[in-house]
Design a protein around this nucleic acid. Structure first.
Lengths: 243, 243
DNA sequence: CAGTGGTCTAGACCACGAA
DNA sequence: TCGTGGTCTAGACCACTGG
């Protein structure tokens, strides 16, 4: 019998979170098949209607695929959506026909500052992964990428070779993103940023601050700095009636 | 007792159809209030869970608004979506509990430059409306707003008093937006911008360039400049996996 | 207080797919 | 045939709103 968190949210939301986290941590392994509704009823101690609602909503949201008479499976990786893709810089660069290269400046495990722990919505100061990477487009540095990563959801982040795989790709592969927050601002480059991006101190940069969630859990916190003169963020989309 | 169609679809789908049709034909008239769940249970002869599911799904799809303890209502025409609303600066300011004020610097009709005509995808150099407005939050200038407006879609734009109505509101009221393009960059303030925003020349600004379409026709082109130190653009949303 | 929507359960029947 | 997901019911308790 598995315990669900004792929060105020409805049971079916807890079940959804439980499932999302277990998708993220790879619990349902190689064939990506979930336990049946009846098994979840027993192991979670909730009624089948509740399990069913959780599974139905995750299916509607695209995380699962269900086949009557067969079972429930984790959906294949994510098609990108408007706001997400502004962040897969490696893919963007390649798509423009240019050459992409990364340089890893930092890749470590740290104990977060109080403020950072707060951003992660951690109760305790659990340690997190920390990386700093510079992304180049044709040998011109365009983006400075600092990330803090929740090791509970994305294990072994510190053991990857991010000159070969983009951080973005590793993260996407490891855990599904259910929510994204972006804050965009314009700031002058400080000395360190200027040095890494090869621009003058004080020149304009775009700062994209971003948090991603898997269920109710913060998965990553990223600070992406773009050389203002070399980069803009674009998006085009059709507003739909559905929220 | 009302009869639902005798098709193969699930009951809750029939209930949804029944409700949608009655929204369309205006059956729930001027206050746009639907019967309660229990009333529908009686009049349709189905269980409350089934009625509830139909109502919940229509709510998720944006057709209904439900208030616990109050009732179920037909949703107002066009709910705003994430990317749109980052532009309704007047509403944002008021929502934060601050005072909003606009100053109209320019409101005129011009013949577009070749480049501008190209952005509008005009074949000929049809004249367009042009406005420049400064938006204040508590008497502090936060946004410089330059717009070019297609007079074919938004008539009499040049005759409005934009110290009373926000440009955004007038545009939204006049034409539905079917597509939006955003390009965000960071630039140093030029002399004129610096003066209008009350900042130093060369200090960092966020530049949001935006085009909106109504069908295949470009409706507006806007250039929104934010004082970098006073403003950031934020968004939070749940990616739907639907492409 | 009564009425609303929000959630949850236990149990039932069905359609489908694989062995 | 058996296990899967899909639907539906009757009844219950809760939180919230309004008078």
């Amino acid at each position: 019998m598995i315990d669900l968190p004792d929060t105020a949210s409805p049971l079916y939301e807890k079940v959804k979170d439980y499932i999302l986290i277990n998708i993220g941590t790879g619990k349902w392994g190689k064939d990506r098949k979930l336990p049946s509704e009846n098994e979840l009823v027993v192991s979670l101690g909730v009624s089948r209607m509740t399990v069913h609602r959780a599974l139905r909503e995750l299916t509607a949201a695209g995380f699962l695929i269900r086949l009557q008479g067969v079972g429930t499976f984790i959906a294949p990786p994510r098609p990108q959506s408007t706001l997400i893709e502004i962040n897969n810089i490696a893919a963007e660069i390649v798509e423009r026909g240019n050459r992409h290269r990364s340089e890893v400046l930092v890749l470590e495990t740290i104990v977060p500052t109080k403020e950072l722990a707060l951003s992660f919505e951690f109760a305790k100061r659990t340690s997190v992964y920390h990386s700093v990477v510079v992304n180049f487009e044709n040998d011109l540095p365009v983006q400075l990428e600092e990330r803090f990563v929740n090791p509970g959801l994305i294990p072994d982040y510190d053991k990857q070779d991010f000159t070969r795989t983009a951080t973005y790709d590793y993260l996407m592969q490891k855990t599904p993103v259910t929510e994204v927050e972006h804050i965009i601002s314009a700031i002058p480059a400080d000395k360190e940023t200027a040095q890494h991006l090869g621009i003058d101190v004080g020149s304009c940069c775009l700062l994209l601050h971003r948090r991603t969630w898997t269920g109710a859990v913060v998965a990553t916190i990223s600070k992406l700095t773009y050389a203002g003169s070399r980069y803009s963020l674009g998006s085009r989309y059709s507003p739909s009636r559905a929220s």
